[in-house]
Amino acid sequence: MDLVRIEDVHKSYGHLEVLKGVSFSVAKGDVQCIVGPSGSGKSTLLRCINHLETINRGRIWVEDDLIGYRQNGRILHEMSDSELCHQRSQIGMVFQSFNLFAHRTSLENVIEGPIQVRSTPKTQAIEKARALLAQVGMDRFENYYPRQLSGGQQQRVAIARALAMEPKVVLFDEPTSALDPERVGEVLDVMCELAKTGMTMIVVTHEIGFAREVGSTLIFMDQGVVVEKGKPRDVIERSNNERAQAFFSKIL
């Protein structure tokens, strides 16, 4: 069953068309990796999936929910803030620059969503947050502020924060690109374990090893379109597309 469906998505900033008709679906439990040169629209695509950006054409569904709009025949009604918040709360997102709340500890970062958005009782939220921090190997750091943690540690807390909302899908936007090389592994390990739990994930990454080993399918994007899509090994090694070949030969 397809959990995420992306249909003919177009997105422009002014006259610059960044996404030029992107379509694909992600099955439940799949790890969909996306690679492509810088500026090809990968981040924009992820941001459209949880409606941090509005789209100019096309539609996106997560499970049965049309993102950002209520459809009534041929009319798409824009959603209110509260409906949007409800949708976003079901879609996790992990950012390249971690974006932890700087004035809150690891634990406070993780319980923020459940308490403020879901009205989970505090003791219950804390219990769950501790389990999630343990899952990402950060349970010993629950009282640390982000500035006291390394990049890899911050990113693991950020993953726990996203998981605390029990999302249907988690979007990762180059989660290891801002890390020191020796810190990349610890974050990828956490993501690998998460994939094993059956979490649906869409991962923009330059870690070809991760895409090959963990990815269910791989998309190669360039200049706002999906150029190649298939089994990671096939896309990486047997693509007939020139641009894909050039890209992979450069980063492998």
């Binding site: 941090l52 509260s82 949708q87 709360s89 079901q90 996790g92 923020e112 969503g113 605390a164 909302m165």
Partner: peptide, 13 residues
Amino acid sequence: GQIEAAKSIGLSP
């Protein structure tokens, strides 16, 4: 970035 993260977990404006 923190504001985007806050949006992404569904916090209201």
